[in-house]
Each structure stands twice: as structure tokens, then as C-alpha cells.
Lab assay of single mutants.
Amino acid sequence: VVEKVLDRRVVKGQVEYLLKWKGFSEEHNTWEPEKNLDCPELISEFMKK
């Protein structure tokens, strides 16, 4: 389960987000493609920053 979106990048035309996973430490954060995500409210919250 995604706890928080930390960053955004574009790699080869694909948007990816750096995710903080609930119950895991920062060392387990991962970059995931936008198309694989199902957390629009967290993405929206990140984009407001």
C-alpha cells in the first residue's frame, strides 16, 4: 500500500513516481510507472506542492 508520493520523473517518455510504502522504511522506496498506480488521491496531493 502506498503511503506517500515523494517525487516525479519522466523516463523515456513515461511518468514515474517515487513511492513511500506503508510499513516500510525509506530504503524500500521505489520508482513506479504511473500506469501501474491506483492512488490518484496521493498523486493529486503531491502535485499540489
Rank of each mutant, 00 (worst) to 15 (best):
K12M: 14
T30R: 10
F24D: 04
K35Y: 08
V5A: 02
F46S: 05
K48T: 08
E45W: 03
G23C: 06
E27Q: 13
V10H: 05
G13C: 07
E26H: 09
F46G: 03
I43P: 02
V2I: 14
D38Q: 14
G13S: 09
D7Q: 13
D7V: 00
E27H: 11
L37S: 03
V11F: 10
I43K: 02
V11S: 10
W21Y: 08
E45Q: 05
V11H: 15
C39D: 10
G13A: 04
E32G: 05
K20N: 05
M47A: 14
M47S: 11
R9Q: 05
C39A: 10
F24S: 12
L19M: 15
E16C: 03
W21C: 02
K49P: 15
K20P: 01
E32F: 12
I43N: 01
I43C: 08
E3V: 04
M47K: 15
D7K: 08
V1M: 06
V11I: 11
V2A: 10
K49S: 10
V1W: 07
D7N: 10
L42M: 13
N29D: 04
K4P: 00
L6N: 03
I43D: 01
E32Q: 10
M47P: 03
P33W: 08
W21A: 01
P40S: 15
N29Q: 08
N29M: 08
V15F: 09
K4Q: 08
V5C: 02
W31P: 02
L19T: 15
C39Y: 05
G23A: 07
V1A: 07
K20Q: 10
E3D: 11
K4I: 05
L6H: 06
E45H: 03
W21M: 05
F46I: 03
V5Q: 00
N29T: 12
E41M: 10
P40L: 11
R8M: 11
E26N: 12
E34S: 07
N29C: 10
T30K: 11
L42E: 12
M47W: 13
L37H: 04
W21K: 05
L18Y: 08
F46E: 03
Y17T: 01
F46Q: 02
V5H: 00
E16R: 03
W21V: 02
W31D: 01
E32A: 10
K22N: 10
F46M: 15
D38M: 06
V2F: 07
V1D: 03
K22P: 01
K48W: 04
G13Y: 04
L18D: 00
P33N: 14
V2Y: 06
Y17Q: 01
V5N: 00
V5P: 00
G13V: 01
E34T: 04
E27C: 10
L19V: 15
V15S: 05
E32Y: 15
E41K: 13
R8N: 04
K12N: 09
W31R: 00
R9T: 01
D38G: 10
E45M: 12
G23V: 02
G13R: 07
N36W: 06
L37V: 13
P40R: 13
K35H: 09
R8S: 11
V2R: 02
L42F: 04
V2L: 03
L37Q: 05
V10D: 07
D7P: 00
K22A: 12
V10I: 12
I43Y: 03
V15M: 08
N29A: 14
V10K: 09
K35V: 12
S44D: 14
K4Y: 04
P33F: 07
T30Y: 02
I43L: 15
S25I: 02
K49C: 15
G23P: 02
E26C: 14
K12Q: 14
V15C: 04
K48S: 13
E32S: 09
E3F: 03
K20A: 12
Y17N: 01
N29S: 13
E41T: 13
K22M: 15
L19C: 15
Q14Y: 06
E41A: 13
W21Q: 04
K48N: 15
E27W: 09
I43G: 02
V11K: 13
R8K: 12
Y17G: 00
L19I: 15
E27T: 15
F24Q: 15
E27P: 05
S25F: 01
V2E: 07
R8Q: 09
L18A: 00
E16A: 04
I43T: 07
K35N: 11
D38I: 14
R9W: 00
N36P: 02
P40C: 11
V10F: 14
Q14F: 06
S44N: 13
L18P: 00
W21D: 02
K12Y: 06
V10A: 06
L37W: 02
Q14C: 08
K20C: 05
L6S: 03
V10Y: 14
K4H: 06
V10L: 14
K49E: 08
M47T: 15
N29E: 06
N29P: 06
L18K: 09
E27A: 13
F24C: 05
K12L: 14
E34W: 02
E16Q: 15
E32L: 14
W31Y: 01
K48C: 06
S44E: 15
E26T: 13
N29F: 06
F46K: 02
Q14I: 15
F24L: 13
Y17R: 00
L37T: 08
L37M: 13
Q14T: 11
V11N: 05
K20M: 09
K49V: 08
K49W: 15
R9K: 07
D7S: 09
S25E: 13
E32I: 08
V15G: 02
D38W: 05
P40F: 13
D38N: 10
R9M: 00
E41Q: 14
L42I: 10
K12W: 07
L37C: 14
P33S: 14
V11C: 11
G13Q: 05
K20G: 06
F24K: 15
D38H: 11
V15K: 04
L37Y: 04
I43V: 12
E41H: 09
E3Q: 06
P33D: 10
L18G: 00
P40D: 14
E16T: 04
E27M: 12
V10S: 12
Q14M: 11
K35S: 15
L37P: 00
K20V: 04
E26Q: 08
N36T: 15
N29K: 06
M47V: 09
V2N: 00
Q14S: 12
K35I: 13
S25P: 10
C39M: 07
L37I: 12
E26F: 09
K22C: 11
G23F: 11
R8D: 05
E34I: 06
D38F: 06
G23Q: 06
E34R: 04
V10E: 13
E34Q: 07
G13E: 09
E45F: 09
V1I: 15
L6D: 00
K35R: 13
W21T: 02
F46D: 06
Q14N: 07
E16N: 03
P40Y: 09
W31N: 01
G13L: 03
P33H: 11
L19K: 03
W21R: 06
E26S: 14
W21I: 04
